[in-house]
């Protein structure tokens, strides 16, 4: 036996007899990463939000105060928060409505090559650059773009004009209206809704559907009483993605839509242009609080019971 092999042998034996040490060695790096870098910076964000900025010097005052939070509840800022939450909710609901039938088909009917094809079709957009996709939507939604052209070609131009002139929507073209922003968000986040729902449906064994049918339930009843309740954890997981990603995004609303700001843009402007880090931090806390509330409600409603 050579010395090196005996050394590695001894090391193997040493580790074999100390499974907890192995576990520690495996978990320490990711826990350090998560604990120090991720949670640490989140905590520092929280602390920053309790500082304030001196109006004259523009310097951060390191005294704890609720100044930033008081400013957060100004009418302008509340409007930004309301606008963002409404957009995130709409995007989430529409993503769910579009994703469910697709996920259902992939999980229950597609098999072999068809299934692989659908996976690729859902995932493919994620492989290309985010900015490229957003800019291509800007082109598609523009006044001279494909959708306006199609409506005009079908003689439905006035209909589109009417929709765009509705209150709230208000835009000269799709690319400068909330509809355009929502369409782009829906497109970009759709995979994050399809995949969890599909995974949840995939886990429902066929025998459950047969049992329901065997016990007298028509397909519609089986869907309402068995399939849908068991898909809810997937829908909840998907909605967490679409909702939180929309809450935090600052690029799509900047490139597409009316120029009215969303939370992400507000954070961006406060920490960049304005140099008001405490206010940016306070704004950044908003999505975190909203998500905490959202998850609590989802849990109360039993969204995770079937997990």
């Amino acid at each position: 036996m050579t010395p090196s092999s005996s050394l590695s042998n001894r090391l193997s034996t040493y580790l074999f007899n100390r499974p907890n040490l192995v576990l520690c060695l495996l978990l320490l790096p990711p826990l350090l990463w998560l604990g120090v870098i991720y949670l640490g910076s989140l905590f520092s964000l929280l602390v920053q939000s309790f500082f304030s900025i001196d109006d004259f010097t523009g310097k951060v005052v390191y005294d704890l105060s609720l100044n930033s939070y008081a400013r957060l509840f100004s009418a302008t800022n509340l409007a930004i928060i309301f606008r963002t939450v409404m957009m995130a909710s709409a995007v989430t609901v529409i993503c769910g409505i579009i994703a469910f039938p697709l996920a259902y088909y992939i999980a229950r009917f597609a098999s072999g090559r068809t299934k692989a094809l659908f996976y690729v079709a859902v995932m493919l957009p994620l492989w290309s650059n985010y900015l490229v996709r957003v800019y291509s939507w800007k082109l598609i939604l523009a006044k001279e773009g494909a959708i306006h052209w199609m409506f005009n070609a079908l003689g439905l131009g006035p209909l589109l004009e009417w929709i765009l002139s509705l209150p709230v929507v208000e835009g000269s073209s799709l690319s400068t209206s909330y509809i355009g922003t929502a369409l782009t968000f829906i497109y970009i986040w759709l995979p994050f809704m399809v995949l969890p729902i599909q995974a949840a449906l995939e886990r429902v064994p066929r025998s459950l559907l047969e049992a329901s049918s065997d016990l007298g339930a028509r397909p519609g009843e089986t869907f309402r009483k068995v399939i849908f309740p068991l898909a809810i954890p997937g829908i909840a997981a998907g909605s967490i993605f679409t909702f939180s990603l929309t809450l935090g995004d600052y690029i799509i609303p900047q490139l597409i839509g009316s120029s009215r700001p969303f939370i992400g843009q507000a954070v961006y402007q406060f920490q960049g242009t304005a140099g008001d880090i405490p206010m940016a931090a306070a704004f950044a806390m908003v999505p975190i609080v909203i998500m905490a509330v959202y998850l609590t409600i989802a849990k109360r409603l039993g969204a995770f019971d079937a997990l």
């Binding site: 459950l208 047969e210 049992a211 016990l215 309740p229 068991l230």
Partner: peptide, 17 residues
């Protein structure tokens, strides 16, 4: 669902929720 028979499944197929 229109047959007057019921089944006990091999994996029991109880509704987990």
């Amino acid at each position: 669902y229109d047959r007057d028979v019921n089944t006990v499944f091999q994996d029991y197929a109880l509704f987990p929720h």
